[in-house]
Write a protein that binds this DNA or RNA. Structure first.
Lengths: 241, 241
DNA sequence: CCGCTCCTTTTGTCGTACCAAACTTGAGCG
DNA sequence: CGCTCAAGTTTGGTACGACAAAAGGAGCGG
């Protein structure tokens, strides 16, 4: 037992918060490796010399912070945090916000904003490999025009390539967040090969502009694409404005 | 007592989760108004016919989701969620991520990316009032060159105006998040009137380009500005690359 | 009206107990 | 030897009761 635990603060803060920070440290320092289950609650209460109440509170807090993955009745699994888990941990609030008036519109507009910048960046700085990835994603998209289910996936994947161009892990995380948050709305949309073809053509226009290194054209193509997609959603769901 | 409560699911999910969703509904539907304190725990356990254990777990969950503001020993206060609270609730994870290698750089680069798009947008679509706000913020910035403390505030405020141009509540929330997360690093930076003057001149260049409706010039001015600021930080803290 | 004390309420923590679901073990079998 | 399945064991989810400490009020005196 050479474990040196920082002394628990005498008073003021909650004991649970202290346990949370202790476990956080263990996760970050690698004592608790990614993917391994957390020790049993009764074991933790012994290690931290505290009650199960406190341990359980700490666990729920860590869970909602995304540092551990806690399914009911199962051992919580530690999950080393990345920007992706950070974003997914706000999913619950965002879902509430989307239920409000204009919530979806607000989120979607921000997505358009971000992607406009992304295609600009791609036109400016995409590497040869980025272009190849885009071309590949575009081809996959074209090949699945007749299969709406698959088309949706390849559509998402195409946009996903754009989020990876800046080589910043935040952007793929943002992309995943956007798609998961907006998916419930998208999935209820009627699909059709004709519709898919229109979207594919938009993707192709974006791709062509990027290849031509024409940032303005790329941005405009993307904006047209996403605005049209929104209009389609709006009419279908009869949203305001 | 005309309150109709959805029947608690028989089994499977945690009881606490059910209570969480119930209180969420009360907050969103306005039964629990913003700013009012939550009912006492014993009252809630009576209303939901459950134990205090469950009620308390629900409260901690709601707290870490940012739907209520819970200081120890004080009654939790209801806080209607916005995109701002959503972002601030991930602060705890982001703080951990910033401690990792290149964490700050990653976050800062994303900020540069976003602001590049913002100044472009401002050059394209800023209203007369936006321009006036920018001019005012710039003037305040200039007037506080000699007061580094105040200069930092007006600096932040100037950038903040840019985040408000798209008229999308997500962006001001993002700005607040960026500043609060990066503030601990910035505040340890040495300041000087000379340094402030350089930054002010950068702001002015950005402003001028926006007024001229020159998106390319605005973007470049901003990139130069933030890259220089980063270089300053990097050298001071001797960070890698 | 202000400030102090005393009493009530409420939160934070602990301990115990019980159930049901998950896990472990080992016997039995092909 | 490996697989299946049914026991027992562990462990998470919930409930109940208790108590110290702090907050919130009520009353009292200035």
């Amino acid at each position: 037992m050479d474990q040196i635990e920082a002394a628990r603060p005498a008073s003021g803060g909650r004991a649970a918060d202290w346990v949370v920070s202790q476990i956080e440290d263990d996760i970050l320092s690698g004592v608790l490796e990614n993917g391994t289950p957390l020790p049993a609650e009764r074991e933790l209460m012994e290690r931290f010399k505290t009650s199960r109440t406190v341990v359980r509170e700490a666990i729920t807090t860590l869970s909602s912070r995304g540092l551990i993955d806690a399914k009911p009745r199962f051992r919580p699994v530690v999950r080393k945090p990345g920007f992706d888990t950070a974003l997914s941990s706000v999913g619950s609030i965002v879902k509430l916000l989307l239920a409000e008036t204009r919530g979806v519109k607000t989120l979607y507009e921000s997505r358009v904003f971000v992607e406009r910048a992304l295609v600009r960046d791609a036109a400016r700085a995409a590497t040869r490999k980025d272009i190849d990835d885009l071309r590949e994603a575009l081809a996959a998209n074209q090949n699945s025009i007749s299969d709406s289910e698959e088309f949706y996936r390849t559509d998402t994947a195409f946009h996903g390539v754009l989020y990876r161009v800046p080589r910043n892990p935040i952007f793929p995380a943002v992309h995943e967040a956007y798609t998961s948050w907006l998916a419930p709305h998208w999935e209820r949309m009627p699909r059709s090969p004709e519709r898919n073809r229109v979207n594919f053509m938009s993707h192709k226009a974006i791709f062509d502009a990027i290849v031509e290194r024409d940032a303005d054209a790329a941005e405009e193509a993307l904006e047209t694409h996403l605005k049209a997609a929104w209009e389609y959603v709006r009419v279908t769901f009869e949203l305001e404005e």
